[in-house]
Write a protein that binds this DNA or RNA. Structure first.
Ligand SMILES: [Mn+2]
Ligand SMILES: [Mn+2]
Ligand SMILES: [Zn+2]
Ligand SMILES: [Zn+2]
Lengths: 152, 152
DNA sequence: GGTAGAGTGAGAGTCATTCTCATTTAGGAG
DNA sequence: CTCCTAAATGAGAATGACTCTCACTCTACC
């Protein structure tokens, strides 16, 4: 993990440098908390996972990190914003599964077949509507294992 | 349109009746405004498209209509909630294309190939994570024709 | 017509998020 | 190392979409 953490820091520093932003201790804490969690985290989760991170600083730094394409903002089923390391950084395109009962959001692997169908859909949309489709977001909605077990 | 409008009202009345809710004039105005627009509308758009609809009544009635499965709440790229007639009512499963420049959201037809790929993905998720997937939401993100034309 | 309960609407309240600004910090110049 | 300047910080105020309150109105049913 030492090596991976150092490589992550190097990439983040580079992305921030292109926007003339510094890679401060708090920003590193946020990035490493997100890397450790491995799923989209709310502000509350980030505050719990770090030491001495004021709420206003968390919001401001997440905006900076999102602008530098270090993190991505994901909207969950509840009203809370969630954040994860960007696909540019992790190099792994994926989708999300959300539990409509407890709000949990986890990553879901994609597949060549699904991506091919999505690409074809995007092409048809472009033809029919003049819309240029640059990315897609897919959420699979349901109930997580825990909520199913606890169900009445 | 006369026939279709009457049929729509009948279905809405039935859906509301199962929740012991009335189909009032304001609720009819909202439903018909949504039917006329044919794409997810914001509260502001609904207020502009109707006469004498106070904001608080719009929010309350949209909540009632959503609870009765007459309308569906869709989250747009900006922070604003959007509403459309439910798929149960229109009988047409579809996805959305959103313009990240101006916030426009329009409907996008699906295809058997895409739905099959989505169903397979849902099955794999269930196997791997114990997640019971009941529905999916797909947003194709890009730039609309108007924003592309106006681009710098 | 009378009445009980649903619906209405103006305004107050909520709360995640953003903004403000005085203070602290850090990186480069000398 | 010591300034100097601009970025970063953080406590609190402000914002704004949305929800709640409650006195009033309407409506379905008798
Ligand atoms: Mn993710
Ligand atoms: Mn739609
Ligand atoms: Zn759950
Ligand atoms: Zn646009």
């Amino acid at each position: 993990m030492e090596r991976a953490a150092a490589a992550l820091d190097g990439e983040v520093r580079l992305l921030l440098a292109t926007r003339e932003q510094r890679y401060t201790g708090q920003r590193r804490e946020i990035v490493h908390a997100l890397a450790g969690l491995g799923r989209p985290a709310t502000i509350a989760e980030l505050l719990a996972a770090t030491r001495d991170l004021p709420q206003s600083t968390a919001y401001r730094n997440l905006a900076v990190l999102a602008d530098a394409d270090v993190v991505r903002r994901v909207s969950g089923p509840d009203g809370f914003a969630r954040f994860e390391l960007s696909e540019a950084l992790s190099g792994d395109h994926h989708h999300h599964v959300v539990c409509e009962s407890c709000g949990l959001v986890i990553d879901a692997a994609t597949s060549p077949r699904l991506e091919a169908a999505l690409a074809e859909t995007a092409r048809l949309i472009a033809e029919a509507n003049g819309f240029e489709v640059t990315e897609h977001r897919l959420e699979l909605v349901g109930r997580c294992r825990r909520c199913r077990a606890a169900a009445c």
